[in-house]
């Protein structure tokens, strides 16, 4: 067991599994190797489902004591646990028992609880995008002014009324969006790609241990 404790073991595993994906991608090793590659990815997915256990346990570790010790908001924690088990049970993969993802009750809760909650939360951004613009779209400097102006042009461009009042704004808005915005995104994407590559190499070299921090 003491050997397994060493942080070199997981690093070695990391490297091996990474190279399985990288090398045959560039160097031709035949279809058999490529099939194995794909299989390893699917196999890894199965391994990673185990993290479910951790998440489930950690949620329960937080909320069960809250309920049993009647801490503040324990009623809500109870609600959380109840809904978690409810969804799990009605979603168990046994269609014979009318359970599972296509079962009646699972669809009922999916459509009437999860969907409205998720969609409403997503849509709350309409409010935040307005309040953030109200406080931050201010011409404090030339840079801030550029941000403000291009933002406002695009808003006017997308409002049906905006293009009706100022037809030229459609072309101007599209230009800003397709030329400077696209070019900036492209540069940031290249830089980001390079950063991700260097980070990946650091992981393979065993330097980036953020995810394995600790060790003995």
């Amino acid at each position: 067991m003491s050997l397994l404790r060493r942080v070199e073991i997981p690093i070695a595993i990391t490297i091996i599994f990474a190279l399985i994906q990288v090398i045959p991608y560039f160097v031709n090793m035949g279809p058999a190797v490529e099939a194995t590659q794909d299989k390893v990815v699917r196999w890894t997915l199965i391994v990673s489902t185990g993290a479910l256990l951790v998440g489930l346990t950690s949620l329960l570790l937080i909320h069960v004591p809250r309920v049993t010790r009647r801490r503040t908001h324990w009623e809500y924690s109870l609600l959380l646990i109840a809904f978690m088990f409810l969804m799990t049970i009605i979603g168990l993969p046994f269609p014979e028992l009318n359970l599972g993802l296509t079962g009646y009750w699972f669809s009922f809760f999916y459509n009437n609880v999860l969907t409205p909650l998720s969609a409403s939360l997503y849509a709350i951004l309409a409010f935040y995008i307005t309040s953030a613009a109200y406080r931050a779209f201010k011409a404090r400097s030339l840079e801030a002014a550029l941000l403000l102006i291009s933002g406002t042009i695009l808003v006017l461009r997308n409002a049906p009324l905006g293009t009706f009042l100022i037809p030229q704004i459609a072309d101007l808005g599209d230009w800003i969006f397709n030329i400077p915005n696209m070019a900036v995104n492209r540069a940031i994407m290249i830089g980001g790609g390079l950063g991700a590559m260097v980070l990946g190499i650091r992981v393979l070299l065993g330097y980036e241990r953020g995810y394995l921090r600790g060790g003995e």
């Binding site: 397994l4 404790r5 942080v7 073991i9 997981p10 690093i11 595993i13 990391t14 490297i15 091996i16 599994f17 990474a18 190279l19 399985i20 994906q21 990288v22 991608y25 560039f26 390893v40 990815v41 890894t44 391994v47 990673s48 185990g50 993290a51 951790v54 492209r186 994407m189 290249i190 980001g192 790609g193 390079l194 991700a196 590559m197 990946g200 190499i201 992981v203 393979l204 995810y211 394995l212």
Partner: peptide, 30 residues
């Protein structure tokens, strides 16, 4: 420490996938 084994498998596979896809999608193509 045993949990690091599945972790290493997961991270390794996906770092590998990332290395090979990022270089094309985000760098070469751009």
């Amino acid at each position: 420490f045993l949990y690091r084994i599945p972790l290493a498998i997961t991270v390794g596979t996906y770092i590998g996938l990332a290395l090979r896809s990022v270089v094309f999608a985000q760098v070469i193509e751009q």
